[in-house]
Amino acid sequence: MDPAQIAGILKQGAVPTSWYLALSAVLFVIGVAGFVLRRNIITVFMCIELMLNAVNLSFIAFAHEHKQVSGHLFAFFVMVVAAAEAAVGLAIILTVFRNRSTLNIDEIDSLKN
């Protein structure tokens, strides 16, 4: 994409849908990076939420693209599932912390070997 094209977009006042998709991709990659790099189990969990949000953004961008409300509903279901996941996940994290008093995922490895 050359600068002239970008200037045209800025003048026209409309954002290409692909920009939203690119933003979604960037967010997803950030989430993956955090998921791989971080050792705190809560932060890892938050990176999963970040990935889910990235996916939601592309769902809604496509809903706008096709002028249909279905994409919004997928995003809505993702949110609901994320809420359920957070409830159970945080309960598990609490239990793990009570039993092992650590949040470092490298140290929670009693199933290894």
């Binding site: 994409m1 026209q12 409309a14 290409p16 849908t17 692909s18 939203y20 998709l21 690119a22 991709a25």
Partner: peptide
Amino acid sequence: AYFMQTGMPQLGSV
């Protein structure tokens, strides 16, 4: 980002 940009040229704008 590049493939998003080039792979879907038929996408409209928002």
